[in-house]
């Protein structure tokens, strides 16, 4: 799959996007894996202090926001495009 990182997350991952191979079957499992890989500087933007997914981080699977569906349980597959935004906004 292809994972794209935005805003602060690029400071941690050092890449804007990467091809990534995982056995994770859901968005939540993938996020857990990425938080372990990139550590607390990454995790603080996408997880709440209790370890659950942030309500205001934007995580898209093929352009669809996981918060509009089953959230952490959103299934993922090898060919998917994943976008991960920390909480940012504008207007």
């Amino acid at each position: 799959m292809r994972i794209k990182y935005f805003a602060y997350l690029r400071d941690v991952t050092r890449v804007a996007e990467e091809h990534y191979i995982t056995t994770a079957a859901t968005a939540g499992a993938l996020l857990d894996e990425l938080c372990r890989r990139y550590g607390p500087p990454f995790a603080k933007w996408v997880l709440k202090p209790d370890g659950s997914l942030s309500e205001i981080a934007i995580i898209l699977v093929n352009g669809r926001d996981i918060r509009d569906g089953v959230w952490a349980e959103t299934p993922i597959a090898p060919g998917d495009d994943i976008c991960i935004f920390p909480p940012v906004a504008g207007g």
Binding site: A7, I56, F85, P87, V88
Partner: peptide, 24 residues
């Protein structure tokens, strides 16, 4: 708030370009 407290200062409102593009 993550947005009001830090996000807008760091990237300005232009950070929306990638968000809106990613959601089509």
């Amino acid at each position: 708030h993550p947005v009001g407290g830090a996000g807008l200062k760091a990237f300005g409102t232009d950070v929306l370009v990638n968000i809106l593009n990613s959601v089509g």
